[in-house]
Design a protein around this nucleic acid. Structure first.
Lengths: 211, 211, 211, 211
DNA sequence: CGGTAAGCGAGACGGTACGTCGCGTCTTAAG
DNA sequence: CTTAAGACGCGACGTACCGTCTCGCTTACCG
């Protein structure tokens, strides 16, 4: 395969090609350090050292620390389709519980924080990531809710985008509460949030509509 | 008797007391710069320069950038009691709309981001702030909901703490969405979230489950 | 004695008089630290602390570190008359050997170095001290040599000022050679220098002028 | 064969080599500032600025101000052989007058002072320099005197090492006397010292002891 | 198969912020 | 008016990290 006759295509650029193992090592090192020390205390020098790579080799791939971190986290997210279990309750659980598990991973949590800080500082990277990764998830969630509306499980005039924000915010909020303040495991807490959301969305009925 | 050391009382410590104008100038400079350049690009040197103060004078008060920022924002929050308008809907609006206005201020937004980053990095400062500032707000909100439960406006078995998370997360989420992604003014968007929350909490039942 | 009726005289200035014990403590602390850590590493804070005195109390007496050091060393030198033993050799020994002993004291050595550095930097303090302390010693030495000339022990046309430089430089040079380079005790070495000076000044006569 | 590491030889270390122009610029800047403001007022920041170099670049080469100054002066001294004119008088003049000229240069003077201060503070740098630079000069001077002894111009039993100290001290003393105290140019004064030394060493006997 | 263009590890470079320390001045309260 | 205590403005210190550069070497392709 090495002497493949060009086949056609964009005709690989001249010179030595980039080492893919280096690519992987850099991203892995970044993720590890991100979890271990956090964004602020992560240094390019440390990343290069852990990846057993020269510092310029990192910069050849990513122009800045911010870009490196973005890429390292981006690479870890894999898309998954919106669940379709047939019931709103089932869909919600199928969608949100895995999401909660992800939030429990320190890497994603860390990244979330970075995203927010960068965002607040007007970084372009935040917007890019938001549109790319967050928007997809939101769209899936939205479809899920629309199906529930079609089935009549959910009030048809509820603003789905708004609802998505509410549920998403509620979920993320759990993960961002400092560990020392939380009194129960994240997973359990999130489970209860999911239950609450189900109750609210399917129409609470406090003491009957009769009054 | 003349040399009696005032017996009890706080009896100021010896030496020149700290200049309160300096205190104020440092906090003001920090807030300004936080808004102008953001947390990462804020430097102690710049803070000192803007406050027209020596750098060690800043460090005398705050051991680190993190502590400085925490204090600067902390000083800006003033407590307000939970509203009591007599109806859940009125209370929610009275409580949440001012909160939304605060979120619109770049300073608080910036601080929120810092809080999250610091938190993820295991900083003690995040926990302290959380307990001090956030917890008070949450308690007020909780009382508000409890009154609604007593009045029968809200299902008595709803977990108020959970509900608080959900609403709080939904609110904050609005503020943290990158400006470029938002399509309507923050205030207007939040108003709609409040409406949505009202509908959910008071038991939606738009067209009945029957149809 | 405390209630002495003013006696008369220049009518003591108003207010609390300066504490003379403080004066002494400051100078003593300075000398100790000068010997222990040297001029560069000596700090006003340390001096004040060791003297158990506030820092401004030091500054009230001495405007700068340089002035403090000058005063501290100055206070240790006491004048002594030029010896007059009747012979050049006796006078030289009587004058130079005590001087050598002084050079052995770390304090004076340290001060000498400071004097030189300050001098090279054009400090006024160096000149003042030079004129005050060094000049007196030089004058005494000069008188000694003049008496020797009158007695005919010393060539009458020798430039005494020049001779003083030569002998003085030779003496100081001994003290300034780094301890690690010296191979015999300072006192012994200086004794031999004195002997050499005596031989040279009284007119060496190698193998007769006849040739 | 292609990857053979050159077998023996110095074989440059990996990485970018140090910029020799930077080396030179730093030393030059140091010398200039040393002359302009003196040792105490010389700052690493100023050196770096004048050399148009980052501050860390200076620290990469010299761990401290002391080491920097040592190197900067060290680089300026070039060895010269002991003169051999055939007569003690000629040799003395040939050796000492150039030395006096050097002493007239502010740089060397400044350095001399630093040497002394550092020495008194127990710095290793002083001893190193002493052994390296001073010892060589002393040896040359000693050889010169030995030749004079062999020729019978100088008493054979004079201790040459001691004599070297005496003459050296006398010379340096001239340079270190504060400029404001000196009344004639350094060069002229030194010339007279040389003359005096010649008279003393060759056995003074101006008008005989008889008169 | 030798040339050439790029990748690579290493590390120096200019710049900038950090957090500390010392200087010399000031502002308190106590005497 | 002196004293002890200590805050203040200033500015240097030595360190760390950023992002760029320059080395000598290696690795692929391309003629």
């Amino acid at each position: 395969m090495t002497s493949q006759p060009r086949s056609s295509g964009p005709s690989r650029p001249p010179g030595r090609p980039r080492d893919e193992q280096v690519d992987a090592a850099i991203l892995a090192a970044t993720r590890e350090l991100l979890v271990e020390v956090g964004y602020e205390r992560l240094t390019m020098t440390d990343v290069a050292a852990r990846a057993e790579v020269g510092r310029p080799t990192v910069y050849r791939r990513y122009a800045s620390k911010e870009a490196l971190v973005a890429a390292s986290v981006d690479a870890v997210r894999q898309p998954s389709p919106a669940p379709d279990t047939g019931s709103l309750r089932g869909d919600l659980r199928a969608e949100l519980l895995p999401r909660a598990a992800e939030l429990g991973e320190p890497l994603l949590l860390q990244f979330l924080a970075v995203l927010l800080v960068s965002n607040a500082e007007g970084s372009p990277f935040a917007q890019v990531y938001w549109r790319k990764a967050v928007a997809a998830r939101r769209a899936a969630f939205g479809e899920m809710l629309e199906r529930a509306q079609l089935r009549g499980e959910l009030a048809a005039d509820l603003d789905i985008d708004l609802l998505t924000d509410l549920v998403g915010g509620g979920m993320i909020y759990q993960a961002l509460r400092p560990a020392g303040v939380r009194d129960e495991p994240l997973a359990q807490r999130v489970e209860r949030v999911v239950e609450l959301v189900c109750r609210l969305l399917t129409g609470v009925r406090v003491d009957g509509p009769g009054s």
